[in-house]
């Protein structure tokens, strides 16, 4: 078994009086594919924002490839190997599809800006490598023929895939996907499923997936963590999760007598 690339434990975040995430923990090794689910407002995106440094956790430890990252700025964490997509797509709309991916290669660039200005051989070689890498990713994501279009002009499903391609261009150890299937039709979802698996297999990236499409989650995730009102209410294999009464209750919103969690804590 490979070493853990992401280890989080006891992570908490409060917004005003709202405990958005409570004592969250997860561990991922290279090649792992795990799911993070929960009803709307459960705190899933907040978890991503905590892991990527958009928010600083109030408490808890987060380690990326063995190094603590809590409190570091997002760009440092990205450089350390964490990449993400956004629930509400955040492409660089005015830039071309190709440039969106090329930008993400920037974090691994070694030459200085002065080398760029002087167009040194080193900078040229690296620019060529970036071009090749970006086009390779566009090929993989079936976006090659849209390379010159502006990001904002792509159809929705393509934008979602472009976000994944862009995230991968940073050479991540951990890839966080926030509802990548949202707004996709069944055919696109099927392709996305194959794509996520392929990314995991080819790049050996650890993937954490937030998704409301239960079919997709249950099919591709090895383990699933379920959040409700910021609390982790279950963790296990898809089979275990599907039959977990607390999960069913959280999703169906049933007030069960033997459930001391959730409402009483809010």
């Amino acid at each position: 078994m490979s070493a853990l690339v992401l280890e989080a434990s006891g992570v908490c975040k409060t917004f005003g009086g709202l405990k958005a995430v409570q004592s969250f923990g997860i561990s991922l090794a290279g090649g792992d594919l795990k799911g993070l689910i929960g009803p709307n407002g459960a705190g899933k995106t907040t978890v991503f924002n905590l892991l990527t440094g958009v928010y600083t956790p109030d408490e808890g430890k987060i380690a990326l490839a063995g190094r603590s990252i809590a409190g570091k700025r997002p760009s440092r964490i990205a450089a350390g190997g964490m990449a993400r997509t956004f629930q509400n797509i955040r492409l660089f709309g005015e830039l071309s599809v190709l440039d969106n991916v090329k930008l993400a290669c920037h974090v691994r660039v070694k030459h200085s800006m002065w080398a760029s200005v002087l167009r040194t051989p080193g900078s040229r070689a690296e620019e060529r490598a970036i071009e090749g890498k970006a086009r390779g990713l566009l090929d993989l994501f079936d976006l090659a023929d849209r390379a010159d279009e502006q990001g904002k002009n792509l159809p929705y499903g393509d934008q979602r895939r472009l976000e994944i391609a862009r995230a991968l261009a940073t050479d991540p150890k951990v890839l966080l996907l926030d509802e990548p299937a949202a707004g996709m039709n069944p055919q696109e979802k099927k392709e996305l499923r194959d794509l996520i698996r392929r990314v995991r297999d080819e790049f050996k990236t650890a993937i954490l997936l937030i998704e409301h499409d239960m079919g997709l989650v249950m099919e591709i995730c090895e383990r699933i963590t379920v959040l409700d009102y910021g609390k982790t209410i279950a963790e296990g294999t898809p089979g275990e999760i599907q039959n977990n009464p607390r999960v069913i209750e959280a999703y169906l919103g049933v007030e069960a007598a033997d459930a001391p969690s959730g409402a009483s804590n809010a």
């Binding site: 997002p74 990205a78 956004f86 660089f92 709309g93 830039l95 920037h106 974090v107 760029s116 940073t170």
Partner: peptide, 20 residues
Amino acid sequence: TYGRAFLSIREDEIASEAMG
């Protein structure tokens, strides 16, 4: 590549930061 970094800030600062 530095120009793309500059432009990405203008396009979406949060995404830019998330890309390193």
